[in-house]
Structure formats: C-alpha cells, structure tokens
C-alpha cells in the first residue's frame, strides 16, 4: 500500500459497499451515503501514512466514514435528521410494514443500527462485516440476533401484529 494509489483504490473498491452502508446508517440517504464514502476515501488517502497498523485499514476507514457522515449531519449541510430513513420511506409511499420496520431500525442504538444496515442494506456477508467492524463473526451473530429481537419487540409494542411477522 506504500505510495501506491492503485493499491489504495483496490482496497476502496473492496470496502466500498460496507463504507456506503455505514454512512447510510448515519445519513439515511443513498446519494449522501455514497458522497460520504468517497469523501472518506479522500480523507483516508491524506492520512494513510499515519495509519500505524495496516491490518486494521478497514476498521480505520469505517471510523473515518462515521466521522465524515456525522460531520455532514453536524454541519447541517443538507438538514439531515436522524429520522430520515423512515421519512424517506413515508415519502416514497412504502407500505405499512416497510415503514414500521424502518422505524424499528431507527430506534436501535447507533452500533446496532449500523450492524443491521451493514447486513441488510447491501447484503454483506459476516466475513465482510467482520473486516470493517473488527469483531468476530460470532460476535456479529450475537449482536445481530439481539438487534432483531429489539426490533421485533418494538414492532409488537407498536401494533405490528405477530401474524405479520
């Protein structure tokens, strides 16, 4: 990776979907998420020399992306709120079940929400998620199960009947 922009590009290609998903979990907007991912690559390239443990490139890149996305929210560049995923669904005329699920995703704590989106947004494998989050596949499985359990509770609590699940 030293001094090799092409190698950097290959790594970006490998992790692009995951990085976009991470940005999407913060921004709730497909286009902004891609913008954030590409901005993250630019920032990562500038700081590549400061990366001490290159085996952790993907987790480092993910952390940069979270910051980029949060900055986009913080500076209110596009007046994004944390409710946007569900608002987008409402605007796009999604059915009730989709809207309810999106609301259930929204009420998750940020790390759990990020994990659910990584898994379902682009259909990333546990292996791919493991690379960007720096946690084992068993841990991913456990956290994902807990997150879905919370979602199911939320859906039932909010009148989304069990027979719809």
């Amino acid at each position: 990776m030293d001094g090799d922009v092409d190698s950097f590009g290959k790594l970006c290609q490998r992790y692009y979907a995951a990085i976009v998903a991470i940005a999407y979990s913060v921004l709730g907007d497909h286009q902004l998420a891609e913008d954030a991912a590409q901005e993250s690559f630019a920032r990562a390239l500038l700081k590549l020399r400061s990366l001490r443990n290159r085996a952790k490139f993907a987790t480092w890149l993910a952390a940069i992306c979270r910051n980029v996305a949060k900055d986009m929210v913080a500076t209110k560049a596009r007046q994004i709120s944390s409710e946007d995923i569900s608002k987008v669904a409402a605007r796009s005329g999604s059915d009730d079940s989709v809207r309810a699920v999106l609301q259930a995703v929204e009420q998750l704590p940020a790390p759990a929400k990020e994990l659910v989106i990584l898994r379902y947004y682009d259909g990333l494998s546990y292996e791919e998620i493991s690379c960007v989050l720096g946690i084992s596949k068993a841990t991913i499985n456990g956290r994902l199960t807990r997150a879905k359990r919370k979602m199911a509770k939320y859906l039932k609590r909010n009148g989304f009947l069990e027979n719809q699940l």
Binding site: K10, F41, V105, Y120
Partner: peptide
C-alpha cells in the same frame, strides 16, 4: 423479520468507480 428488513432497506450493491474518483480527487 429477515425478509421484512431486506424488503425495507436492501438495494443493489453500489459500485465504486475508482477512475472517476481519481479524476475528481
């Protein structure tokens, strides 16, 4: 629930065009 979540948030994997990115960065 898996199916519902997939239906609600899944989409086609985005592809990264590195050549284009290089040009703009």
């Amino acid at each position: 629930l898996d199916e519902l979540i997939s239906r609600a948030i899944s989409r086609e994997r985005p592809k990264f065009d590195f050549n284009k990115w290089e040009q703009t960065h």
